[in-house]
């Protein structure tokens, strides 16, 4: 039997208090009207338990927006790699973002292994949080099969009426149970209540687009000359919002910076975006994807086709961030449906 524990809701504040005394804890915190961001917390009042996906996904802890990879000294002719990491507990990760982290894990563990990523990942504990209902109309987590947990966490919280039922998935997760000392064994009633939540979710979550999961890749593979991309060409701003907020976009640029002594310096990597004007520009000024429509098509192919070929996994988690953040109303569900309509 799976290992389930119970945390009474009244004990939740104490749980966060005890956990944050021992660990750096980050959790979704409200940022303005309808925005949330993973932020360090030390009290449960700060945490938004009902939140729509944060502005940036938790990937910012696995591959920060900007991180140092190496440092050098010109006069001494030295070049040393740098590993930056910190111990961290991420609380309240929705299942879509768990899927996103799993995608990144696959990419960065591929040859050659990305040591900087792995050093961080190995020190991060993840506490998942089940969505009992849709966050909003932008989500398409059902069709991407990430509306329920598929592993990738140490502990996983599902909200019941009076308590949270917690699945313990790893030894590190068990460590948190022991450290906080607030958890009880789950009874058969709790397990039954959990099954009720899952059954209710089956009724709530329905395929959000007119295409079946399995038909997505073939559909995108046929779409190269589609009118849909011409339409996006006219509508896209190239602001890069869609890729920067995406939980599975991992493109980065590497830059060598120098200190004011003009002798020592460091190599950094920072997030880059295929939507940026210069992304595919090469020496001589030629750009392989000059048109915004081409860049949008590339973004979609990097979610629904190329990674399926290479890793047998879609790199869209259905979190809806790209559509939610798009200034120009470009909507993933609408794009998929438009392609499906063309195919019919």
């Amino acid at each position: 039997m799976k290992q389930f524990k119970i945390l009474e809701k009244k004990d939740f504040p104490q749980f966060i208090k005890r956990l944050s005394k021992k660990h750096k804890v980050v959790a979704p915190v409200s940022r303005g009207n309808k925005s949330y961001a993973f932020t360090q917390v030390d009290s449960s009042d700060q945490i938004a338990m009902k939140y729509i996906p944060t502005i940036l996904p938790p990937k910012k802890y696995f591959m920060p927006q900007r991180e140092t990879l190496a440092q050098y000294n010109k006069s001494k002719k030295t070049f040393q790699t740098v590993l930056e990491f910190e111990e961290l507990v991420i609380f309240g990760v929705h299942t879509c973002d768990l899927a996103g982290i799993q995608c990144l894990n696959i990419v960065f563990s591929d040859t050659p292994k990305d040591i900087n990523y792995i050093a961080r990942k190995n020190r991060i504990l993840i506490i998942g949080l089940e969505c009992n209902d849709y966050c909003d109309e932008y989500a398409s987590c059902k069709v991407m099969d990430s509306h329920h947990p598929n592993g990738g966490y140490d502990l996983f919280f599902t909200e019941l009426k009076e308590s949270f039922i917690v699945h313990v998935n790893t030894l590190e997760g068990e460590g948190i149970i022991e450290l906080t000392g607030l958890f009880k064994e789950a009874t058969s009633n709790h397990l039954k209540e959990r099954e009720g939540v899952i059954a209710a979710k089956k009724k709530i979550f329905k395929d959000e687009v007119d295409v079946h999961y399995k038909d997505l890749k073939p559909m995108f593979d046929k779409s190269a000359g589609s009118k849909v991309w011409e339409d996006l060409e006219k509508r896209c701003l190239s602001c890069g919002n869609c890729t920067n907020v995406c939980p599975t976009c991992y493109c980065f640029d590497i830059i060598d910076e120098i200190n004011l002594d003009l002798d020592t310096g460091y190599r950094i990597r920072q997030w880059d975006s295929c939507q940026n004007e210069d992304f595919a520009k090469v020496a001589g000024g030629e750009s392989f994807r000059e048109e915004r429509g081409q860049r949008q098509r590339h973004r979609y192919m990097r979610k629904f086709s190329y990674p399926v070929e290479r890793y047998a996994r879609h790199f869209c988690t259905g979190c809806g961030r790209c559509s939610r953040t798009c200034m120009a109303k470009i909507n993933l569900k609408e794009t998929i449906n438009a392609l499906a309509k063309e195919n019919r």
């Binding site: 925005s35 944060t54 602001c239 919002n241 997030w271 975006s273 940026n276 953040t325 200034m327």
Partner: peptide, 18 residues
């Protein structure tokens, strides 16, 4: 040659338009 939005998103600001 990309927009301020790129840096703004990386800084995780709430969008002014929102």
């Amino acid at each position: 040659d990309y927009s301020v939005c790129v840096e703004c998103k990386l800084n995780e600001n709430e969008c002014m338009y929102d």
